[in-house]
Amino acid sequence: MQKLLFTFMALLLCTGLKAQIWVSKNVTSSFFSSTPVEDIDAQSKSGASAINTKTNDIIFKINNTSYEFKKKLMQEHFNENYIESDKYPTSDFKGKIVEQIDFSKPGTYPITVKGNLQIHGVTKEYQAKGSLVITGDEAKATSSFNVKLVDHNIKVPTIVFKQIAETILIKMTAIYQPKK
Rank of each mutant, 00 (worst) to 15 (best):
residue 33 S to V: 03
residue 160 V to R: 02
residue 92 D to Y: 09
residue 73 L to M: 13
residue 58 I to A: 01
residue 42 A to K: 10
residue 87 K to N: 09
residue 104 S to I: 15
residue 151 D to I: 07
residue 80 E to N: 13
residue 33 S to W: 06
residue 115 G to R: 10
residue 53 T to W: 12
residue 106 P to T: 06
residue 113 V to A: 09
residue 87 K to H: 06
residue 103 F to C: 12
residue 142 T to D: 00
residue 179 K to F: 14
residue 17 L to K: 13
residue 114 K to Y: 02
residue 162 K to M: 13
residue 148 K to L: 13
residue 22 W to P: 01
residue 163 Q to A: 11
residue 31 F to M: 07
residue 173 T to D: 07
residue 68 E to N: 09
residue 40 I to A: 05
residue 18 K to E: 13
residue 163 Q to F: 03
residue 67 Y to T: 07
residue 102 D to L: 06
residue 69 F to H: 08
residue 94 K to R: 10
residue 114 K to V: 03
residue 82 Y to C: 06
residue 117 L to M: 14
residue 109 Y to A: 05
residue 92 D to S: 14
residue 106 P to C: 04
residue 178 P to A: 14
residue 28 T to R: 07
residue 95 G to R: 10
residue 91 S to D: 06
residue 38 E to C: 06
residue 100 Q to L: 01
residue 125 E to P: 06
residue 172 M to Q: 15
residue 85 S to Y: 05
residue 67 Y to L: 10
residue 128 A to F: 09
residue 124 K to V: 13
residue 172 M to G: 14
residue 52 N to H: 04
residue 107 G to Y: 09
residue 35 T to F: 09
residue 109 Y to F: 13
residue 30 S to W: 08
residue 150 V to Y: 01
residue 28 T to I: 02
residue 106 P to Y: 00
residue 34 S to F: 08
residue 141 A to D: 00
residue 69 F to D: 02
residue 175 I to C: 06
residue 127 Q to H: 06
residue 82 Y to R: 11
residue 134 I to E: 00
residue 79 N to F: 00
residue 11 L to W: 14
residue 36 P to R: 01
residue 158 T to L: 05
residue 147 V to D: 02
residue 103 F to A: 07
residue 180 K to N: 11
residue 165 A to T: 04
residue 54 K to F: 04
residue 1 M to G: 13
residue 2 Q to C: 01
residue 96 K to R: 15
residue 128 A to Y: 03
residue 178 P to Q: 15
residue 171 K to S: 15
residue 111 I to M: 00
residue 48 A to W: 06
residue 110 P to N: 03
residue 110 P to I: 00
residue 85 S to N: 10
residue 157 P to C: 07
residue 50 A to F: 08
residue 6 F to S: 06
residue 124 K to W: 01
residue 178 P to V: 13
residue 3 K to I: 09
residue 39 D to K: 08
residue 37 V to M: 07
residue 156 V to M: 02
residue 114 K to C: 02
